[in-house]
Structures are given as structure tokens and as C-alpha cells.
Amino acid sequence: MKLSAPLRLSAPLYRLKRQARQLSRRDGIPLHAALDRTAAAEGFRSWSLLAARHADRSPAARLYPRLSPGDLVLVAARPGQGKTLLSLELAAQAMRAGHRGIYFSLEDTEREVPARFAAFGADPARFGDRFAFDGDDGICADHVAVRLADCPPGTLAVIDYLQLLDQRRDTPPLADQMRRLRALAAEREAVLVFVSQIDRRYDPAAKPLPDLGDVRRPNPLDLRLFTKTCFLQGGKVHFAAAG
């Protein structure tokens, strides 16, 4: 299933957001003002209107209904392609449906989360206790299992990112962690979304979209553990069943 950018914008949303950040630094204006100026150039009165339109037609809105309880989803791309944004949009879709969303990250801080959600017209505070952020330095399969121990069915958790689970010497091998997390997702009827790096050798000029063979794996990992995959490049999204 291939999806292209749903709005006729001069660039994909994640690139427009990057342009706004650059504009904010260059002109010394608040980020929200830079976002609104960027949206105006695209024909929208404000960034919130642009982002809301994107949310209505975004790939996440079309992908979320294709997810099932127990899924392990791989969302992979090179840096700057919007993989974390899409993953958080999936969490927002789950929360709009009345489920819980949890964002595990060793990359972002809690202070950065609102800006992440604002990029697609959402505010995590509006979801109340349906949303939780976890930036603990000890994020691993055991840690995730503890946090999901009492989660209700339908919970969607984003782990940003897959390769960070493989960096600590005091945790089991990544393959063992992933087998445990797959069993956990099935037991709790949850959806686990893993943001993943792509190998630097991937060349978009030679192949429009990356695939499983391009996923960065410092140590062995059976990618058939994932039930769904989603690859991004240049504003395009390819979603497929796996496993």
C-alpha cells in the first residue's frame, strides 16, 4: 500500500516544520509565529489550520484502522523523513478513538513533546490521562513491560527508537527483547510502534523507498517479528503486512 502526501503543499509537512524552525532561528521570532508564517505561504491562515487539514487526510488517519491488537509495527526512514511524526500521529489516532497512547523516547524530552504534536495540529494535554510520556534512561523491554502491565486493550505505544534498545550491556540482546515485546503486545492486546533507523548505505537515488533489507541492525534481529512495516522517503509512505 503506497500513500503519497495528501495535501498539495510546496513540501511535505515535516519539511515545512523544519523550514519554520530555521525561520525562527534566523529571524529571532517564536516558533509558533514562524509556523504561522510558513502556513500563510501555503495558503492557510495559521499553522493549526494547515495541520488540522493534514490530520484529516494524513497517512496516519488511513493507516490506523489497518492496525490490530497485538501488532508490532516498524516505522523506518532516514533522518528527517518524518518517521517519529507519523508514529506519534498514530498514537494520536488511537487516543482520539478513546484508547491510551504512550511515547517512550530516549531522544526527546518531555518539554519537546508538545511541539511534536503541534506539528500535526494536536495537543497532548487535551488527551488528559490517555497520554503518557516516558523518557527514562533505562528504557528496554523490561521497562516497557512494567509500564504496560495494566494498560487496557487498544493501547498504542511508540518506542523511539528501536536501535536504542540495543545499546546497553546490562539488557538482554535485542532479539530477546523483541520476542518478549511481541508476546506482551499479544497478551495486553496493545499495538507497539517502533521508530527505526535506516542504514546509511541506503541510496534513494537507486531505490525510491527503503525496505527491510535497509533497516539498521548492529546485532542480529529477525525482522519477521514485526507484523506491519511502514517505510518513508521523500513524502511517500509504503505500508505492508509483514511477519
Rank of each mutant, 00 (worst) to 15 (best):
S4P: 05
P6K: 07
R8W: 03
P12C: 05
L13D: 12
L16G: 09
Q19L: 13
S24E: 14
R26M: 06
D27R: 15
G28D: 07
I29S: 11
A34Y: 04
A40T: 04
F44W: 08
R45E: 10
R45T: 10
R45F: 06
W47N: 08
L49H: 11
L50N: 06
L50E: 07
A52G: 14
D56P: 00
D56Y: 08
A60V: 09
A61I: 06
L63Y: 10
R66S: 09
R66M: 12
S68G: 05
L72Q: 11
V73F: 11
R78A: 14
P79N: 15
P79V: 13
G80W: 14
K83D: 11
S87C: 15
E89T: 07
L90S: 12
A94V: 09
M95C: 07
M95N: 13
F104N: 11
S105P: 11
L106I: 04
E107S: 11
E112Y: 02
A119Q: 09
A125V: 10
F127V: 08
F131I: 07
D136R: 12
G138C: 07
V146L: 15
V146R: 15
A149T: 09
V158Y: 08
I159V: 15
I159A: 06
D160R: 11
D160L: 06
Y161H: 14
Y161D: 06
Q163P: 04
L165F: 05
L165G: 08
D166L: 03
Q167F: 01
R169A: 10
D170P: 00
P173E: 00
A175E: 06
Q177V: 00
A183N: 01
A185V: 02
V193C: 03
V195K: 02
D199P: 02
D199S: 09
R200N: 05
P204V: 04
K207Q: 08
P208I: 03
L209S: 05
D211H: 04
D214I: 02
R217N: 06
P218S: 03
N219C: 02
L221G: 00
L223H: 04
F226H: 04
T227V: 03
T229P: 02
T229G: 05
C230P: 04
G234D: 08
V237A: 01
V237K: 00
A240V: 01
A242T: 07
G243A: 09
